[in-house]
Deep mutational scan, measured.
Amino acid sequence: TEYKLVVVGAGGVGKSALTIQLIQNHFVDEYDPTIEDSYRKQVVIDGETCLLDILDTAGQEEYSAMRDQYMRTGEGFLCVFAINNTKSFEDIHQYREQIKRVKDSDDVPMVLVGNKCDLAARTVESRQAQDLARSYGIPYIETSAKTRQGVEDAFYTLVREIRQH
């Protein structure tokens, strides 16, 4: 089974770092803004072998026109913010609204991801993020692309959301 996953969120929150940590098991430290990259990885989730087709997208506003296209083809979405960047957390709402509009559905598989949880300088409390996820009816997972904490959990949870859909 193949799953088309799309990673969305503001610029600099760590979308590529999360994806590369999942696929290649290493942490990319330097920031190089993405336009669009796709990665494929075969994994076993709950005993089922599946192929993850992951689209890593641009957070930069100037590429926002490309969003409709990949939102149409994606089956599930990782909505990523950084726990030390309140603005990126506030941006999640717009991504969710755009996904709902493009998919013409209120019920699209999504996982809210709070990345950079290895950093002490948190400005978005776990509780705020949990409340937001609960209001959307989606899971919330904290990750660190640096330490790998929660990385597999985030992507695998999204696959489970798609399966249950």
Rank of each mutant, 00 (worst) to 15 (best):
K100H: 09
S16E: 01
I54C: 04
D118E: 13
Q98V: 14
G150S: 12
I83Q: 12
A120Q: 12
A145C: 14
P139E: 08
R148K: 08
G76L: 15
F89T: 04
D29P: 11
P139C: 06
D91P: 04
V111Y: 04
Q98H: 13
G59E: 03
V124T: 10
K4Q: 11
P33Q: 04
F77V: 07
K41M: 06
N85D: 15
V6N: 06
T147E: 12
Q21N: 13
K4N: 15
P33W: 02
T49P: 10
F81E: 00
D46P: 04
D131E: 09
S64C: 14
V151S: 11
Y95R: 03
G14F: 00
F77Q: 02
N25M: 08
K116N: 15
Q164V: 04
R101K: 08
V108N: 02
E62S: 15
D131N: 07
H93N: 13
D32N: 03
Q130S: 09
K103N: 08
R96Y: 14
T49Y: 13
D37T: 00
T147W: 08
T1N: 11
T147L: 09
D29E: 08
D29G: 08
H26E: 11
Q149S: 08
I45K: 05
Q98S: 12
S64H: 13
L5S: 00
D32G: 02
D106C: 09
C50N: 06
S126V: 09
I45G: 04
E125A: 09
G114H: 02
V151Q: 08
R67I: 15
Y39W: 03
V108K: 04
Q130H: 08
Q21T: 10
Q98F: 15
F81K: 01
Y70R: 06
T57H: 04
Y39N: 00
N84C: 12
G137K: 06
D107W: 10
I83T: 15
K41P: 12
E152F: 15
I54V: 08
E61Y: 15
Q128Y: 07
E125G: 10
Y136D: 06
K146H: 15
H93Y: 10
L22H: 14
E142N: 04
V43P: 06
K116T: 08
D131K: 08
I138K: 02
E48P: 05
T123E: 13
I138F: 06
Q149Y: 06
Y3V: 09
D29K: 08
A121S: 11
N84I: 05
Y31C: 03
L18D: 00
E75H: 11
Q69P: 10
V80S: 03
I83N: 09
E30Y: 07
P109D: 02
Y136V: 09
I141W: 04
R40T: 10
E90P: 06
V111F: 02
C50S: 07
S88I: 04
L78P: 01
S105R: 12
M66V: 15
L112D: 02
C79L: 14
A82R: 08
R127Q: 11
V108D: 02
F155D: 00
V28W: 13
Q24T: 14
K146G: 15
G59L: 02
G11I: 13
I141R: 05
Y156P: 04
V124L: 10
L18I: 09
G114D: 01
F89K: 04
E75L: 07
L132H: 05
T57Y: 03
S135C: 07
R148Q: 14
D32F: 00
D107M: 13
L112E: 02
S16W: 00
E2T: 04
R148W: 15
F155N: 01
L119W: 13
I54F: 07
Y3D: 03
K87C: 06
K103P: 03
K41R: 11
D46S: 08
A65I: 15
K4C: 05
V13N: 09
K4I: 02
E97I: 04
Q69F: 09
F27L: 03
E90D: 13
Y31L: 09
A120Y: 05
R96N: 03
K41D: 07
A133T: 04
S16V: 01
R96D: 01
V113P: 01
Q60V: 15
S64T: 08
Q130W: 07
K100N: 05
F89E: 03
R148L: 14
T57N: 03
C50V: 11
L52M: 11
V28R: 03
A129K: 05
K103H: 12
A145W: 02
S38W: 02
N115W: 00
R122L: 11
L112M: 07
G59A: 04
T86N: 11
T143K: 00
E36Y: 04
Q69T: 10
T19W: 01
Q42Y: 08
Q69C: 08
E142F: 03
R163E: 09
M71T: 11
T19H: 00
M66T: 12
R96K: 10
T34D: 00
Y39A: 00
D53Q: 03
V6E: 00
T123Y: 11
L52H: 00
V43G: 09
V43N: 12
F155T: 03
D37S: 00
G12M: 11
K87D: 09
E161P: 03
Q130V: 09
P109N: 06
F89N: 03
A129T: 06
V80D: 02
N85E: 11
D53M: 03
E48W: 05
Y156W: 11
Q130Y: 11
F27E: 02
L119M: 14
S144W: 03
T34K: 01
D153P: 04
Q128D: 10
Y70M: 14
V124R: 10
D107L: 09
Y140V: 08
V44M: 11
I23F: 15
G114M: 09
L51W: 11
Q60D: 14
A145M: 04
S16F: 00
C117S: 10
G137N: 10
R148P: 12
A82N: 15
D53G: 03
G114E: 03
P109E: 02
S144N: 15
V108P: 09
T147K: 09
C79T: 04
D153G: 05
H26C: 13
M110S: 01
N25Q: 12
L119D: 15
V108C: 06
L52W: 07
V43I: 14
A129P: 05
R148H: 15
G59R: 03
V6A: 03
D68V: 04
A82C: 13
T1K: 09
A154H: 01
T143F: 01
E62K: 12
E125L: 11
E161S: 10
E75K: 07
L78E: 02
D106K: 06
Y31E: 02
D29F: 07
E161I: 13
D153L: 07
D37Q: 00
I99P: 02
A58E: 04
E48C: 00
T49N: 11
L52G: 02
R40I: 07
V159P: 00
L5W: 03
D56R: 01
D46R: 10
A129Q: 04
E62P: 15
K41H: 11
L52Y: 09
A129V: 09
T34M: 00
T19V: 11
Q24K: 04
H93P: 12
R96T: 11
R160T: 08
A65N: 13
S144G: 12
V6R: 03
R122Y: 14
R148F: 14
T157V: 11
Q98R: 14
A145H: 00
E30S: 04
Q42S: 12
E2S: 03
P139N: 06
D29H: 02
V124K: 11
S16Y: 00
I162G: 03
E142Y: 02
A121R: 08
K4P: 05
F155G: 02
H165R: 12
E75C: 11
G137C: 04
T157L: 11
D56S: 00
T73A: 14
Q69Y: 12
V151Y: 13
Q60S: 14
M71Q: 11
T147Y: 10
G14C: 00
N115Q: 14
Y95C: 15
V111Q: 02
G137I: 04
T57V: 07
N84W: 04
A10Q: 07
